[in-house]
Design a protein around this nucleic acid. Sequence first.
DNA 1: TTGTAGGCGTTATCAC
DNA 2: GTGATAACGCCTACAA
Lengths: 344, 344
Amino acid sequence: MRKITIKDVARNAGVSIAAVSYVLNGKENKVSQDTIARIHESIKDLNYIPNMTARGLVKNTSELIGVIIPQTEDHKQLVFENPFYSEMISAIEGVVRDYGYHIILAGVDKGKTYLDISTSRNLDGAIIMGIYSEQLYEECKLANIPIVLIDSYVHDNDFAKVGIDDELGGYLATKHLIDNGHRNIGLVTGMIRKDGVVEKRFLGYKRALQEAGLFYNSDYVFENSVSYVHGRNSGSLIASKFPEITAIFATADMVAFGVIRGIKESGKEVPGDVSVIGFDDISMANIFLPPLTTVKQQISLKGETAAKLLIEQIRNKRGVKNQGDRTEIPLEVVERETVRKLTK
Amino acid sequence: MRKITIKDVARNAGVSIAAVSYVLNGKENKVSQDTIARIHESIKDLNYIPNMTARGLVKNTSELIGVIIPQTEDHKQLVFENPFYSEMISAIEGVVRDYGYHIILAGVDKGKTYLDISTSRNLDGAIIMGIYSEQLYEECKLANIPIVLIDSYVHDNDFAKVGIDDELGGYLATKHLIDNGHRNIGLVTGMIRKDGVVEKRFLGYKRALQEAGLFYNSDYVFENSVSYVHGRNSGSLIASKFPEITAIFATADMVAFGVIRGIKESGKEVPGDVSVIGFDDISMANIFLPPLTTVKQQISLKGETAAKLLIEQIRNKRGVKNQGDRTEIPLEVVERETVRKLTK
DNA sequence: TTGTAGGCGTTATCAC
DNA sequence: GTGATAACGCCTACAA
C-alpha cells in the first residue's frame, strides 16, 4: 500500500501539484474556488496526510519541540519517579498540541547529545527542565533555536526562563514555621549548589531566621540528595539526636515524605512532636497521610507558561530577540496537617 | 550561520558526496582507508551532524517512536497525574534511546489524530498505553507500522501486546485478603469494561471468592472512575455504612490511597478496622503511610519489554509477522502494612 | 489562475 | 574505489 502523496491528490483532482500545495498552505488566493473545492474533495477521498518530513526539509522546520529532562546519575532513567516532572510535561504537551506541535522527550546523556538531537531533528525549540552544566548551555546556544529554561538561574540573556521565586519560597516556608512558634528549625535539602533552586530556598530559610532574630545553626541543615531516602534518614536522625528541633523545612515534597517517615520510625509524631513543611505541592502532597503542609508552586501553570513562551518565540523568530527575562509563577503556602502551632 | 551538510564535509575532505555518505552509513568497504580517515576528520572538524529529516525522507524512516497516552476526559491533559505512566515512559525512553530512537509523546484527541501523527511523522513504530476504542485500533492498522499495545486485551493479531495477567492479579489480591481471615471483602474499582484490565481483576476477585466458598455480593463492589476521589468516597461510605466489610481490594494504588483516606476520615483505622490492598505498586505505595500492601506489577519492566519488542519488530520488518502474542510480566503481592491478619 | 522546475539534505544506483 | 545523479515529498519562485 503505497503512501499517497501530494501528487496523487493532484492527479485525482485533475490539477497541478502546485495548486494542491497552495491550498495546503492556505495560499488560497492563488487558486480558483473551483480548484480549491476539487482539491479538498480529493484530499478527503484519498485520505491524504501531508508528510511533515518532506515539508520540514524544505521549510527547515519540524513542528517538533524538545523537552529535555535531567538524568538521574545512577539509573540512566529519566528522573520521572518525581511526579513533579510528569505534571509539568503533561501541561506542556497540552498547550503544545493545541498549536500543532509535537513533543520529543529526551534525556541527555553525557557528551553532546543535546546538540545532536536538536540539530539532527531540526527542533523548532526546546524546553529544558532543571539545572545543567555550563557546557549544556553552551551547546544550546550553538543549536541556535529558541529555548526556555525551567527553574534555572543561569545568568544568560540568550534564554527565556520560567520559574518561581525560590528564595521567597524558602522564606515563606520558614516563616510559616516561625509564625507557628517554632524556633529550632531544621532544613533537609538536596545539594546546595550555586545558583540552584535549592540554594535560593536555603537563602530564604536563612533570611526568615534572621528576620525573626533566630540563630542560624549549620548543624541543623541536612544536605544531600533530593530524595525520599535522604529525607527518611534525616528524619530519623533529627528525631533521635536533635530533640530540640521542633520543625523541619524540607525543600521538596518527596523529601518531606521521607522526613515524616523517618520521624515516625523513630517513635515520634508529626506534627505532634515535630512539624514538617514541604515544597512543591505535588499532587501526592494532598494524598499523603497526614496531608502535607507545603509551599505550593503551580506546576502545571509553570509548564504551560514555558510552552507558551517558547511557541511565542518560535513564531516571532524574526521579531524581537528574547530578553532573557525570568517570568515567575506565584507561590503560596498551603496549610494542611503537618505543622502544629506551638503554644506556650 | 548556515547549517553544515554532507556537502561541506565532502568539499572539506576533498572527496565526493557519495563517499561521505558511504562512511556515514558504515559501508566502509567501498571506500579506501585514506578517504575514510580524511572524512572522519572533516566531520569532526566541521562538527557535522547528519540531518535526520533528509535521511528520513529518502529512507522512509524516522527513528521516531510514538508513545500514545490516554487522555483524561475533562482536562485535556495527559493522564500523567497517575505516576504509573511516568514510570513506564521513563523506562521506555531509556531502552529506546539506547537503540538510537527518540520518543514522540502524544495524547490523542478525538478524531483521527493518531493516524495523522503516525503517518505525517513517519513513525517507525508506536507504543499505545491503556485501552482505547475499536476505532483507534482500526486506525492503527491503517498506519501500517509496528505497534505494541500495553495493557490491552483486544483480540487482534496485528498487534504485539505486553501486559500482566490481570485476572491472576485480582485473584492474588483477593486471596491474600482471604488468607488473612477476611470474609467480607469490598472491591473499589474503575469502570468494569469488557476486555479491560479492570474487568479481569474483577473476575479474579470473584474467582478467589468462589474458590474460598465465599458469597459474591454485588453490593460490595464500588465501581466508578479509577481515581483518588472515588477511592476516598468509597472508603468513607464503606467505613460508615458497611461495618461488616473488613477488607477492601482497590484495583489501583491511587484508588487505595483514597480508600484509606476515606476510612480514616470516618474515624476508623487501617488496617486496624479495615484492611486494604492495592494494585500496581507505584513508587508512592512504599512511601505512603501506612505503606501500602499491594500487588506489584513491574512497571519499568513492562515498559522496557514493550520497547524492546517494538524495536525488534521494527528491525525485522521484512521478517516474520508479529503473531499477536501477549507477553506477560510476572506479578506478586508485596506485603506491607495495610492488611491485618484477622484472628478472631 | 495555473503549471514547471529547482532545491531542501540524504541515500543509493550506476557508470567510470 | 570513486563520483555523478536520480530519487524521496514537498514548497515556491517564476513563467505561462
